[in-house]
Design a protein around this nucleic acid. Structure first.
Lengths: 326, 326
DNA sequence: TTGTACGCGTTATCAA
DNA sequence: TTGATAACGCGTACAA
C-alpha cells in the first residue's frame, strides 16, 4: 500500500479509501491510484484490514453434511446473498455430531466471523454459552425454535410431517409406518417423528413402535428399512419416510422388487427432492424453501450486523407435492 | 492475551506459546495459563495471529457447484484431511463461470489463504497470471492437465470416456449417441467428448454431430436430451451420457415411457453415483475416487506449503461399474 | 524455558 | 477531500 501511495503521489490512507470507499476519493485521485495499483500488482491484505477495522466481512455456516443436496441449496442461497453484499461464506460440516459442530464454531469465533448460521436448534449447552458470550449474531436454520439462540429461519418440521400423515390418511391409508433419521441431537428429525405420531393420533390411529425405523440418511438405508418393515409387519399399507433420501431409496426398492406402489404400499417423503419428481410413480413429497432459507439467513445476519435487534424468527412454510406414490 | 498473562503471572508471549506450541511450555506454566484462559474466557484472535505469522492456515477451494454431490464428496475429503492437520477450508462456487472463478480466487488471495484447490484446468489467462504472481500453492483437481499450473490430482476424463465407449462397443452397440455437458471453458466435459469420439474412431465407427447433445447437468435435461435423440435419430441403439446426473435422468425417462433398457437403448453414465446403482436396471457407470481426490489435494497443498516443489501430478484412475443398463 | 523489542499491513480518529 | 498518528492483537527473532 505504501508503494502504491508513493507511485500515485498520495498518502497510504488515501489508497485505503480508494480501495474500500471509492466514493470518498476525488475522481482524478482515484484514477491515479488505480493506475498505480495496476502497475505495482498490489493485492489488498484483508487480514490486516480486518485487524484494524474489527470486521472480517465473513460469515460462518455449519451444515450437517455437504453431500445432501438439501443443505447445498441453502448454502447456495446464503452464499449468493452474502456475495452480493460483499461478504464471504465459510462452511463447516458437523457430520450430525454436536461436538464437531462446537469445534467448527470455535474455529469461526477465533477467525472473528461477523455472523454465524447454524443448522437446527439442538446445540451443546457449552456452545450456546460460548455464542452468547461472544456476542456474535447467530441464525438457526431449518426449524422453528421455541426459544431461539438469537434469530431463526425455517419452517415447522412438526407441522410438515403431521400434514403429510394427514394426506396419507385422506388417501385412505390406516396402517402407516415411519422411516426417519436418527433422533439424537437432531431437532428436525425429532420434530418430524413427533409430527408423525400427532398425525396418527388426530386420525384416531395409534402409533406402534414396530412401525418405526430410524436409520442414517442414505438411499440404501431407506431400501433396507422398508424391506425390514414389510417382512416384520406385512400388514402396513403405507410408509412415511421423513426425508426424500430415505423415501427414494424405499421407492427404488419397490420398483426393483416388483412391489406395486401404491398398490402394496403407498410411499411419501419430505424435502421435495428433484429425483423424487422424476420417478415412476412420482414420489409424494413436501417442498421446503431450501434456497430461501439461506437467502433469508443472510439478510437476517446482515441486519443484525447492521444493528438490528435479535429475536427475528421467520417461518417460510411448506407445500405438499402430491404424487402417484400415495 | 495480556489479561491472561497477568492472571497467570507470565509474559504474553508465553500465553501465545501455550496456545500455539504447548510443547514448548513447562507443564506447570501450562496449567496456570489454561486456568487463566478458562477464567478470562479468552478466545485466540486468529486474524492478529495470521498477520503476525504471515500464515492463515486456510485453504481456498473452488468448485463449479455445491449441488452436485460429486464435488461434495471431494470437498468432504479435502476438509477432513485439512482439519486433521489444523487447517481450515474456504469454499467458493463458480457456477461453471470462469469469471466468477476468477473473482472467488481474487477474494482468496486477499484473504491470504495458504493454498488453493481449483476444479479443472481451464482458467482465464488473467487468473493464471495472478496465481503465478502470488506464489500461492495451487492444485488442480478432477482432470490431468498437460501443463499444470502448479500441481494436480485427478484422472483422465478422456481415457474414462473412451473406456466407456469401448465397453458399449464390446456389448455390441454400434449406433452410440452422446449426451454431455456444455463444453465452454470446461476441460472435463471437453475431454469426455473427445474420449467419446476417440472410442468411436477406434471401433471404426464415425461420430455424427446429430448423435450429440450438450446440456446443463440436471436430471430433467438428461431426459429431454434422450427424448430428443430418440425422436430425431431413432436408429440409435445406445446412449453414453458423460455424467450420471444426465444418465439417471435419461434412464428414468425410459422407465417412465416404458422404453426397454437396454432393449430399445442401452445407457451408460460416468461418475458412479449412488443413485444409479439403486435403479432397475442398474446404471452402467464409471467410479472415480471422488473423496480421494480431495484428500490428495490436501496432502499436496500441505506439502507445497511445507516447501515441496511444484509439478506433482497424481492420477487416481477410474473403475468400470458394469450394470444391466448396457 | 521464558522474556524483550518490534513489526505484520491495514483502518479509526481526528485534524487540516 | 486528504493526511498524520496511533492502534488492532498477535508472532518472530533474538536474548537471557
Amino acid at each position: 500500500m505504501a508503494d502504491v501511495a508513493r507511485e500515485a503521489g498520495v498518502a497510504p490512507i488515501t489508497v485505503s479509501r480508494a480501495v474500500s470507499h471509492p466514493s470518498q476519493v476525488a475522481a482524478h485521485t482515484l484514477t491515479a491510484i488505480r493506475r498505480a495499483i495496476e502497475q505495482t500488482g498490489y493485492v489488498r491484505h484483508a487480514v490486516a484490514g480486518s485487524l484494524a477495522s474489527k470486521a472480517t466481512r465473513c460469515i460462518g455456516s455449519v451444515v450437517p453434511v455437504l453431500s445432501n443436496s438439501i443443505f447445498a441449496d441453502t448454502l447456495q442461497g446464503l452464499s449468493e446473498e452474502l456475495e452480493a453484499r460483499g461478504y464471504r461464506l465459510l462452511i463447516g460440516s458437523s457430520q450430525y455430531d454436536p461436538l464437531r459442530e462446537q469445534r467448527v464454531v470455535e474455529a469461526f469465533l477465533e477467525q472473528r466471523v461477523d455472523g454465524i448460521a447454524l443448522t437446527g436448534t439442538t446445540h451443546l449447552p457449552a456452545l450456546r454459552a460460548q455464542l452468547k458470550r461472544s456476542g456474535t449474531p447467530v441464525v438457526e436454520m431449518w426449524n422453528l425454535p421455541t426459544r431461539p439462540l438469537d434469530c431463526a429461519v425455517g419452517f415447522s418440521n412438526f407441522a410438515a410431517a403431521r400434514a403429510m400423515v394427514r394426506h396419507l390418511v385422506s388417501r385412505g391409508h390406516r396402517r402407516i409406518a415411519y422411516i426417519g433419521g436418527p433422533t439424537y441431537m437432531n431437532d428436525r428429525t425429532q420434530a418430524r417423528e413427533r409430527g408423525y405420531r400427532a398425525g396418527l393420533a388426530e386420525a384416531g390411529l395409534k402409533a406402534r413402535e414396530a412401525f418405526v425405523r430410524r436409520t442414517p440418511f442414505e438411499f440404501e438405508n431407506g431400501a433396507r428399512a422398508l424391506s425390514d418393515l414389510l417382512s416384520k409387519t406385512p400388514s402396513i399399507d403405507a410408509v412415511f419416510a421423513a426425508s426424500d433420501v430415505l423415501a427414494v431409496g424405499a421407492l427404488l426398492y419397490c420398483l426393483k422388487s416388483g412391489l406395486p406402489v401404491p398398490g402394496r404400499v403407498a410411499l411419501a417423503g419430505l424435502d421435495g427432492s428433484p429425483i423424487g419428481a422424476q420417478l415412476t410413480p412420482e414420489l409424494t413429497s413436501m417442498r421446503f424453501a431450501r434456497r430461501e432459507i439461506g437467502a433469508h439467513a443472510a439478510s437476517i445476519l446482515l441486519g443484525r450486523i447492521g444493528g438490528a435487534l435479535p429475536g427475528t424468527v421467520v417461518d417460510l412454510g411448506f407445500e405438499l407435492l402430491p404424487g402417484a406414490s400415495s
